Simulated scan of single mutants.
Amino acid sequence: MTPFTLTQLRYFAAVAEADSMTAAARELMITQSALSTAMSQLEKALGVQLFMRQGTRALRLTAAGAQFVRDLTVFLEHADSLYEAAQGLAKSPVGVLSVGVFGPLASVRLPLILDELERRYPGLEVTIHESDLADQQDALRSGRCEIALTYGLGLARGFTAQALQRIPPHVIVSREHRLARRPERPVHLRALEDDPLILLDLPHSREYYESLFRLVGVTPNVRHRLVGYETVRSFVARGHGYALLNQRLQHDLTYTGDSVVPIQIADELPPIELMLVRPSDVRPTRRALAFEEVCRTLYGET
């Protein structure tokens, strides 16, 4: 028999989240003395120090405590799944699902996914972690997210990835650009070599776009490096340059009220894969599997 209880573990998770015994006690609606006693008993049972006390209120996790939080997150998720199954809820997942999403995908894909999730699984609550591609992997490793909707660029080992779509790159120019007169005609990147480039300068995205130019032997004339997808589109619409992007919107308007003109690329260039990614060493919860099911329904090509 383990020398600690599930309640103590949940108390520890709350304290680790709040970095404060007082705040956690308030959240759990128990007295601070009862919570402090539970944490002392848990540390004694484990034989390790989980917290460094800083003053009278603040706490900081030790290295052992931080590792225990990562392991505990998965354990508590499995405990919740076990409870759901015992209550006959196996086909209707409930609880909180933390989803990571690559920033440029969030506004285009996520609202439709959440609409369908709410329709199918009304007891499922979703929290969103929106960031760049590199941070998505860190969030999955640390347990901040269970699953991520992202691109497969720079994907490290230790992840299970499921491809949904292959999205080819395209060029966007302003309506006043010379190529906008024949938008139906695909363009070779060499035809834009002397034009100023507005580069989407995000980790892994940047390397991908730069690799496309290398493949066709072109050195781009980079004018601006921007981290916002809509910022790039707005700069292009105002005539500051052209851009390479993958994700295409349902309209050509930008935040400035101007429009961009999308043009296909004549060169044979590798597409980006839209993927569902999760840690390979963690069994997915029913919540994560429900999210995968909805994404496959909406965006799966196979």
Rank of each mutant, 00 (worst) to 15 (best):
Asp195Arg: 04
Leu61Phe: 09
Leu274Asp: 00
Thr219Asn: 13
Pro183Ile: 14
Glu230Gly: 01
Leu110Ala: 04
Arg144Ile: 06
Ser107Ala: 12
Leu28Val: 06
Pro3Ser: 05
Ala79Phe: 10
Tyr299Pro: 13
Leu42Asp: 01
Tyr208Arg: 04
Glu193Asn: 13
Ser81Tyr: 08
Asp138Ile: 09
Pro270Glu: 11
Val218Phe: 14
His129Lys: 15
Ala106His: 08
Glu210Met: 14
Leu105Ala: 03
Ser20Ile: 01
Asp194Phe: 12
Ser142Gln: 12
Met52Glu: 07
Arg296Met: 05
Ala66Asn: 12
Ala58Tyr: 07
Tyr242Ser: 12
Ala86Trp: 09
Thr160His: 01
Phe4Trp: 14
Ile263Trp: 03
Leu50Asn: 01
Leu82His: 10
Gly65Leu: 10
Pro284Lys: 04
Ala180Trp: 04
Val171Tyr: 02
Lys91Val: 04
Tyr255Gly: 13
Thr256Trp: 04
Gln32Tyr: 11
Asp135Pro: 04
Asp195Lys: 12
Phe291Met: 00
Leu89Val: 01
Ile272Val: 15
Ala191Pro: 05
Ser280Gln: 14
Phe291Gln: 04
Ala63Ser: 14
Leu298Glu: 01
Gln32Cys: 07
Ala266Lys: 11
Arg57Pro: 03
Val94Leu: 02
Leu6Ala: 11
Leu6Gln: 15
Leu9Met: 05
Pro271Gln: 01
Ile113Arg: 02
Gly95Leu: 04
Leu110Phe: 10
Pro284Glu: 07
Thr31Cys: 03
Glu210Asp: 10
Thr285Ser: 14
Arg60Gln: 14
Ala106Met: 06
Ser259Tyr: 09
Gly100Leu: 00
Arg238Asn: 12
Leu97Gln: 00
Ile147Trp: 01
Leu105Tyr: 02
Asp19Met: 09
Ala66Glu: 15
Pro270Cys: 07
Gln67Ile: 03
Phe12Ala: 02
Leu35Cys: 05
Val48Cys: 07
Ala266Ile: 04
Leu50Arg: 12
Leu197Asp: 08
Val282Met: 03
Glu301Leu: 11
Glu43Phe: 02
Leu274Thr: 00
Asp201Glu: 13
Gly300Cys: 00
Leu50Phe: 05
Met29Gly: 10
Thr37Met: 15
Gly239Met: 08
Gln250Trp: 11
Thr31Leu: 09
Arg109Gly: 00
Ala161Gly: 13
Arg296Asn: 13
Ala237Leu: 05
Arg70Thr: 09
Leu164Lys: 03
Val282Trp: 00
Leu245Glu: 09
Thr127His: 09
Leu192Gln: 04
Thr2Gln: 15
Phe159Asn: 04
Asp252Cys: 09
Leu199Trp: 13
Val187Gln: 04
Glu184Cys: 12
Thr5Phe: 11
Asp258Glu: 15
Glu43Pro: 09
Gly158Asn: 06
Pro168Phe: 15
Pro186Asp: 05
Thr56Tyr: 11
Thr150Trp: 00
Val261Ala: 08
Thr73Tyr: 05
Leu179His: 11
Gln247Arg: 05
Leu192Met: 12
Pro279Ile: 01
Leu197Tyr: 14
Phe12Val: 00
Glu207Cys: 06
Arg178Ser: 07
Ser205Cys: 12
Thr285Gln: 06
Thr256Asn: 08
Arg144Thr: 11
